[in-house]
Write a protein that binds this DNA or RNA. Structure first.
Lengths: 339, 339
DNA sequence: TTGAAAGCGCTAACAC
DNA sequence: GTGTTAGCGCTTTCAA
């Protein structure tokens, strides 16, 4: 349709009656070019509003100044904030960010990765789906070794760099907090997935109970799909136990808000009868009643960190690093039993 | 750094002992190629795992299969959901989406647009910043006529296609609802910007009052910066008026939640003493107490629609269209005064 | 029905 | 200090 005709090196060369190569060299400050020539080239470039054609450049280098991001769902404060951190950091190095959404589907994730390679992005940052068990689509191939850094969710093997939150420590701290509030019958509400993130948190929960000589009861470890209805149902089952839990630790915001609804529906008081705390980055946790205690990820920082690591790989570093970002615990009304 | 060596037409041609041109033609189903040749080419391509190099293609066409999106801030359910809609629609046409964030800064927006052009995206979808008054950075130039479609926020002139919510109608409906609940002293809480979106909503509010023979009182039109502290302060000023408003219409979620806090803090009952409704896409509006009545944008639909329009421009259509997407009113506890 | 060759914009190896 | 040339992968005349 369009004749987007930007000025090219050729145009400048023609106008100045010199060779394209000279213009190219002058523009990138090659020392073998005389100052006189460089000056007129610079000026002409300025006048003609020259800007280098990335695409031509990329055809040679085989890489666009783009970094790809694959997230399981974008419509989430957590991921949009990770994305924001990545974008911020990438911009510093002159890279733009292109994001794709796997919608928690393994197939889509594979397709996304294929598309990233086709686009010749310089590198990829990915948060894998819940169902991803096979990670070969991220592995370098004979024809393509796009570097990949994982963020938030990582594969079990340590073949790639990753930036993750400290789930063990966070869950340990949250559980210890509940214990300090006098709770002893502490339940945990998990999502149904195989992510390391989940096992880590469960691990922290169990450790904290051990550390305080509290028995771990299997019936207090509940599972729900990540949707409100299921979270409510699972919580109701917990509340119906002969020995009702006096506290619940929810592993994400959907579960947290669902648990809150279920407890209220049961006519129980939060936190007096059932205390509540959960992993969540939802700012409205402090607007509900009671205000909800949460453990927040430093999502933006996670994005920035992942991007910096990716940059190091793009620039040739082969060393894989695993960076753990601390969480932030925000104690609010839902888990405060004493003053 | 890397030697990402994908199979090229040249490789296929070499392997088959035919010319590059023939391979190219066979692959794209050019009818002048014999079926026999086509078959062996197809098969070889399959075996060698050939995939076309977008970049080489783009060097000729001057365009990458990318559409750019510029949003004022990404860490927002609204914009990430618009983005999701765009991505979904773009994928259908084989385009990927690259997004940039202006952070509500005019300078950044200009820089973003420049970068989009440098990347040779096929088109741009933008939601302008609050401070953008000059829109020349979006206009086609002698050397570049990247098509631009606006979403959610648009420039005052009608030079570009745009997809916007029906602010007049939405505010009219919300105000009428408050009136139907018996409210007569209805205040409006606005953000401090020049966006058409704001004047539209104010317009709908005023119209609805007129239609019901209710006087518009200037002191009931309040302004606040878009942050919670300011929203609370502005609401407190409203509540301190000699004739206290009996209802408030807030123009976005920050203002809405701020107003809620201020009313509660003043010890007033929602909705009995002050009813509340506001524009918001925040799902937690139904988790606070009282549940908040909202007017929601169909953000995903807006993104999809904008993308479809952009596609039409990319494919050559010069006709600018302005599409208005209806909002969805969700009446909840905060504005329900009778059964 | 197929091949040869030019050209998109740029860089780098190799002259001079 | 500067020019010439080849080549990145692809499409598209022009010839045969």
């Amino acid at each position: 349709m369009t004749k987007n005709k930007h000025a090219s090196l050729k145009d400048i060369a023609a106008k100045l009656g010199i060779s394209i190569a000279t213009v190219s060299r002058a523009l990138k400050g090659n020392p073998s070019i005389s100052k006189a020539t460089r000056d007129i080239v610079m000026q002409a470039a300025e006048e003609m509003n020259y800007s280098k054609n990335f695409i031509a450049d990329s055809l040679r280098s085989g890489q666009l100044p783009l970094i790809g991001v694959i997230v399981p769902h974008a419509v989430t404060l957590f991921y949009s904030s990770v994305l924001d951190g990545i974008e911020h950091e990438a911009a510093k190095e002159g890279y733009a960010v292109i994001s794709m959404n796997s919608h928690e589907s393994y197939e889509e994730e594979c397709a996304n990765m294929t598309n990233m390679r086709k686009l010749h992005v310089a590198g990829v940052i990915a948060a894998v789906t819940q169902e991803t068990a096979d990670f070969r689509h991220f592995a370098p191939t004979a024809t393509d070794d796009t570097p990949v850094v994982f963020v938030a969710r990582e594969p079990p093997d340590n073949t790639h760099s990753a930036v993750v939150a400290d789930g063990v420590e966070a869950a340990h701290k949250a559980t210890t907090h509940l214990i300090s509030q006098g709770c002893r019958r502490i339940a945990i509400l998990c999502g149904p997935n195989r992510l390391k993130l989940v096992t880590d948190r469960k691990h922290g929960y169990i450790e904290a109970l051990h550390d305080n000589n509290i028995r771990v009861r299997p019936e207090y470890v509940a599972y729900a799909s990540i949707n409100t209805a299921d979270a409510i149902a699972a919580t109701e089952r917990l509340l119906a136990l002969p020995e009702r839990p006096d506290a619940i630790l929810a592993l994400n915001d959907t579960l947290l808000f669902g648990a809150m609804k279920a407890i209220k529906k049961a006519g129980l008081d939060i936190p007096r009868e059932v205390a509540l705390i959960g992993f969540s980055d939802v700012e409205y946790a402090e607007d509900v009643s009671p205000t909800l205690s949460t453990i927040e990820d430093q999502s933006r920082l996670m994005g920035e960190t992942a991007c910096r690591i990716l940059m190091s790989h793009i620039n040739g570093s082969a060393r894989t690093v695993r960076k753990i970002i601390p969480t932030i615990q925000k104690i609010r009304g839902s888990s405060l039993l004493k003053r």
